[in-house]
Design a binder for these strands. Structure first.
Length: 825
RNA sequence: GCCCCUGUAGCCCAAUCGGUUAGAGGCACACGACUUAAAAUCGUGCCAGUGUGGGUUCAAGUCCCACCAGGGGUACCA
């Protein structure tokens, strides 16, 4: 492809440059971090690690290009930057691929890792190749097990029976995120609920800290992500109220955010699928109706439950609760609009002031009592009123507003022993059991005599058995359970024959602490060294997709807080700054094979080169925005890179030329561009930084062709600045330029150009003089002119005197040195 | 339904604090130079008054309100 043009000294052969520099960089290893004698201050730049599903795709190309800009920029700024990469290598796709082809998930995974690794090397990210990790290596997942056992010791890992998402076709438990619109994401079967005994991490213990510590992240994480996390945790403040139940010894507690409306309660509702409902219905003459209704609800798919205005359904249990504030008998109903796993699974219904309760009351003709004054009558309009207002029909609360009424009611409930203030969360504990092979075995042994017994730490890791001896096809229980040779072991406690827990961990466990393992992926005495962790972490810059806005980031924050409690790290948030890059689309929609709009990264690189792809990605727009590949121009990027490269070839001054003697006009552009691009990179406006570099290239071209000429030292200064700025985005081109400019590699280690602030100051700036906002005159003034001098100067202009025509100015606004506005009424 | 984000030339995007007659950069397009010609290269040019309607202000792309359009999140959380 280069035969005809290679001889042309003005032809930039990008592919030859790629071949040329890779081995040299391998040799220099400019991005090796953490050498013992390195005195530079540290920075930690982290890219979300990939899942090895195949070769790298366009999405990876964008994400890694962006993270690399920051990492390389910080190296130029003199930091000791740790920028590691690894593979999130456990998970379903490997297992499914293995089932499909009768292969081993391990083989499939490691082959894909090798492919991705080769592509990453060619893509020239500034990764530190001495710090690589794979989560499917026993050396890694051993520490998942270790952390699990530490959590277990602290009561943070526990087992319970719970209704979990179940795919009847795949015969397996699904995580919440694997349920898409009520359907299994893999086979589109309707997902049902199943009661299973599973392992959980007690993340709810950390709900308050997960919420409150977000204050540290404000301004440094996207507001959107913080908001999503807040909503996900869903803290609400209210009260618990105790209701006696006729014919039952135990009272029932309900949770409400509006205890002030207790006088307006006209019935109680319990979740139809709760134990409480079953117990209350037992023996009642409506028990048969209840059972029919329960079966109906169970048969209702998740899909149907999602529909917005489904009519309210329910059944009366023929039981009564006693309102603690006025002794009224409240009929108890069972319904599916009350959730069994939120609050206490039972509510007091106040139809006048809660829309759902009102809908229910109207359906079943239950009484509606207004206790907060409002202009409209909910019973008539069908609209519950939830606004603040004076309380009525509420005994001692009458006349009070919402806030006072809530606290008065809580005080009164506390005094009577009938309630207290309470906080509730949407956040649930994290279900980590998976009935799958390709994951970390849970290090617990079940013994008939001793119960659940932790695997002793010195017996870790519990390694996965050889997959080739197992049937991996989904059948409702973990494939590991059938591996008797692996599963049957003596109980560590009593020595009797026992069985290993056959489930594996959710792969989100792997990614919850991997950023600590990079510190020393080979360490075999601990998951990481606390001293190293405190030196490098928290991560200064995390880069990844917004798809992980809740789960991964929440889990990582949880793990960090647990490790903090364990005394292993001295910080409590793992990621100081977070950047979410957008998606790479094609013709307006996500790329997919079935849609036929897949763009192959390898082909794009073949036609335009690595640098052009990286530049096109970075220049396409703000990093948070989606990129439509149909709208970007890798060809244009390639052209620009060649233009920059030619600049370096035109420079004729010696490498040690004194820039301070160079052409001042070009020097001003250079220093302005360096200062601007620096600010742009620090504020994630990488596209603007590239635009500034283009500006400098244009100015330098002009200087060479029709200005100070190629021998002026200012031209060298400009070309070197271009090379350094460009090295954040287009490393091959920058290195080529650096060499042509007479320097030894690597340009990546060249210090960021020092900005001479004297060159940023203009000699003169234009000042506009307005009368009533209309421009009447322009003046060339010194940038340091005083307000008073500028006003005097402006008022003295003949154009202004004419424009005023004798009128007396009402106000004169002076914004030196750029603007004077004379207001004449 | 609720919450959040975004609307600037044909297209992608710029525009610290509200401050010049909205333009840094790119794509596309047109023209010129070079060339026998083309490509490449170099140069020149082109186009909007900032989604719509109000408001605040001496001054609004920028702040406030309403609406429209596009995108995202969430879903009976009591």
């Amino acid at each position: 492809m280069t035969e005809n043009t290679a001889a042309d000294p003005n032809f930039y052969d990008v592919h030859a440059a790629q071949e040329k520099w890779l081995p040299i960089w391998d040799d220099i290893a400019p991005f090796r971090s953490g050498r013992a004698d390195d005195t530079r201050p540290t920075k930690y730049v982290l890219d979300m690690f990939p899942y090895p599903s195949g070769d790298l795709h366009m999405g990876h190309a964008e994400a890694y290009a962006l993270g690399d800009v920051i990492a390389r920029y910080w190296v130029h700024q003199g930091f000791n930057v740790m920028h590691p990469i690894g593979w999130d290598a456990f998970g379903l796709p490997a297992e499914n691929a293995a089932i499909k082809r009768g292969a081993n998930p391990q083989t499939w995974t490691y082959e894909n890792i090798a492919v991705q690794k080769a592509s990453m090397r060619r893509y020239a990210c500034s990764f530190d190749w001495d710090r690589v990790l794979n989560t499917c290596d026993p050396e890694y997942y051993k520490w998942n097990q270790w952390l699990f056992l530490k959590m277990y010791e602290r009561g943070l890992a526990y087992r319970k029976d719970s209704a979990v998402n179940w795919c009847p076709s795949c015969q397996t438990v699904l995580a919440n995120e694997q349920v898409v619109g009520g359907l299994c994401e893999r086979c589109d079967s309707q997902v049902t609920k199943k009661k299973l005994n599973q392992w959980y991490f007690k993340i709810t213990d950390y709900a308050d800290r997960l919420l409150d510590d977000m204050k540290q992240l404000e301004g440094a994480w996207p507001e959107k992500v913080l908001l999503m996390q807040r909503n996900w945790i869903g803290r609400s403040k209210g009260a618990e109220v105790v209701f006696d139940i006729e014919g039952r010894d135990e009272p029932v507690t309900v949770y409400t955010t509006r205890p002030d409306t207790l006088f307006g309660a006209t019935f109680m509702v319990v979740a139809v699928d709760s134990d409480l409902a079953a117990e209350l219905a037992a023996g009642s003459d409506t028990e048969a109706d209840f059972n029919t209704y329960l079966e109906q609800v169970k048969a209702t798919s998740e899909m149907d439950r999602l529909s917005t205005d489904r009519p309210k359904t329910g059944v009366f249990l023929n039981r009564y609760a006693i309102n603690p504030v006025n002794g009224e008998r409240l009929p108890i109903w069972a319904s599916d609009y009350v959730l069994a796993d939120y609050g206490t699974g039972a509510i007091m219904a106040v139809p006048a002031h809660d829309q759902r309760d009102l809908d229910f009351a109207k359906t079943f003709d239950l009484p509606i009592r207004v206790v907060v004054e409002s202009e409209t009558d909910p019973a008539v309009t069908g609209e519950a009123t939830a606004d603040d207002g004076a309380h009525v029909n509420s005994g001692p609360l009458d006349g009070l507003g919402k806030v006072e009424a809530i606290s008065a009611m809580i005080d009164s409930l506390v005094a009577d022993g009938k309630g207290k203030s309470a906080t509730n969360y949407r956040l649930r504990d994290w279900l980590i059991s998976r009935q799958r092979f390709w994951g970390t075995p849970i290090p617990i042994i079940h013994c008939e005599a001793c119960g659940e017994v932790p695997v002793p730490l010195d017996q870790l890791p519990v390694e996965l058995p050889d997959a080739s001896t197992l049937d991996l096809s989904p059948k409702g229980t973990s494939p590991l359970g059938a591996a008797d040779q692996w599963a049957v072991v003596p109980c560590p406690s009593c020595g009797a024959s026992a069985r290993r827990d056959a489930d594996t961990m959710d792969t989100f466990v792997d990614s919850s602490w991997y950023y600590l393992r990079y510190l020393n992926p080979q360490l075999d005495t601990a998951p990481f060294e606390p001293a190293e962790a405190n030196k490098w972490l928290p991560v200064d810059q995390y880069v990844g997709g917004v798809t992980h806005a809740i789960l991964h980031l929440l889990y990582s924050r949880f793990f960090t807080k647990v490790l903090n409690d364990m005394g292993m790290v001295d910080f409590n948030e793992p990621f100081t700054r977070l950047l979410n890059q957008g998606m790479v689309l094609m013709d307006g929609s996500a790329m997919s094979k079935s849609r036929g709009n897949l763009v192959k990264l390898s082909e794009e690189i073949d036609s335009n080169g690595v640098d052009a792809i990286r530049l096109a990605m970075v220049f396409a727009g703000p990093p948070e925005d989606d990129i439509d590949w149909a709208e970007v121009s890798p060809g244009g990027a390639k052209k620009f890179l060649a233009r920059a490269w030619r600049l370096a070839g035109d420079v004729t001054s010696p490498a040690d030329a004194d820039a301070s003697t160079g052409d001042v006009a070009l020097r001003k552009v250079t220093h302005k561009v360096v200062a601007d691009s620096q600010l742009a990179i620090e504020t994630y406006r990488f596209n603007v930084a590239v635009a500034r570099a283009m500006e400098l290239v244009n100015a330098t071209r002009k200087a060479i062709d029709s200005g100070c000429g190629p021998s002026d030292p200012a031209v060298r200064e400009a070309a070197e600045a271009v090379a350094i700025i460009l090295s954040c985005v287009a490393p091959y081109t920058a290195e080529e330029m650096w060499e042509r400019l007479g320097h030894a590699p690597a340009v990546a280690l060249a210090p960021w150009p020092t900005v001479d602030s004297k060159l940023l100051v203009e000699d003169e700036v234009e000042c506009v003089v307005q009368v009533n906002g209309k421009i009447k005159e322009r003046l060339q003034v010194s940038p340091s002119i005083s307000q008073a001098d500028l006003e005097a100067l402006a008022m003295g202009q003949s154009a202004i005197v004419d424009a005023l025509a004798g009128a007396t100015p009402k106000t004169v606004i002076v914004r030196a040195p750029k603007l004077v506005n004379i207001v004449v009424a």
